[in-house]
């Protein structure tokens, strides 16, 4: 799909582009995305695999909808907006070194529990709008930048954190319309955010995540 607008078309069949370490398995009678790792919040498991709930995770929703994330497994990842670690725990299950940035102290307590059983997950209580406060810790040339921050200026956050991403790296962004403007129509907000994003990134694919998350747009992009 090109970057010429917001996809709202019918559900595409999920293709085989899941990264290594992410698998579709039958859990509790349903086909679910799964990763291998310690359960985090009591999610259903199948042996060493634990279900990745697309309704709790924007990245899970993007994978479930078959977006071309470019993930293959083993990436060096920077995750902005880790919150209580639900999604970043799955990322750490299939990726390599994973840096988890979260600004609110309360969810960081839960995030620390997720880090407990994952030796490749590094929590950072930092403001994603101020990358200079963690550039002395996060390594350069990350393969993937995952962003799920609920603040105004989401395109600006992505632009500021461009410095961590390898030139051929991927930005996997979940835009929350209501964080930018609660009153405006989501479509209009998405257009504005994408226009700003295109100043620093080439947008490869967009897709509404409404099946799992109201008023969210999934974006795959690469640095310009």
């Amino acid at each position: 799909m090109s970057d010429d607008g917001i996809a709202g078309d019918a559900d595409r069949e999920p293709d085989g582009s899941l990264p290594a370490g992410v698998s579709r398995r039958r859990v509790d009678g349903d086909d679910r995305l799964c990763t291998r790792g310690e359960p985090v919040y009591g999610e259903p498991t199948d042996g060493e695999w634990r279900a990745w709930d697309a309704g709790r995770s924007k990245l899970g929703g993007m994978l479930e909808l078959g977006m071309e994330t470019g993930l293959v497994g083993g990436e060096t990842a920077l995750y902005l907006g880790a919150a209580n670690g639900t999604t970043v725990g799955h990322v750490a299950d299939f990726a390599g070194p994973t840096y988890a940035v979260e600004f609110s102290p309360r969810p960081v307590r839960d995030l620390l529990d997720v880090c407990e059983s994952r030796s490749n997950l590094f929590p950072l209580l930092k403001d994603a709008r101020r990358p200079e406060t963690y550039a002395h810790v996060v390594e350069a040339d990350c393969d993937v930048l995952v962003q799920d921050v609920a603040t105004r200026g989401q395109a600006d956050v992505a632009a500021r954190n461009r410095r961590f991403l390898a030139d051929d790296g991927r930005l996997l962004l979940a835009v929350k319309a209501r964080s930018e403007d609660v009153a405006a129509a989501p479509e209009a907000v998405f257009e504005t955010v994408l226009a700003e994003l295109r100043e620093t990134y080439e947008v490869l694919e967009t897709r509404r995540l409404d099946r799992f998350h109201d008023d969210h747009l999934g974006v795959v992009a690469t640095p310009r």
């Binding site: 102290p105 309360r106 960081v108 620390l112 490749n120 590094f122 950072l124």
Partner: peptide, 21 residues
């Protein structure tokens, strides 16, 4: 390096979260 990084970031996040709370 990653072992040390994990030790340092975990301790830092725990201390900073506790202090802010």
């Amino acid at each position: 390096y990653y072992d040390r990084l994990r030790e340092a970031t975990t301790a830092a996040a725990r201390a900073a979260a506790a202090e802010r709370e």
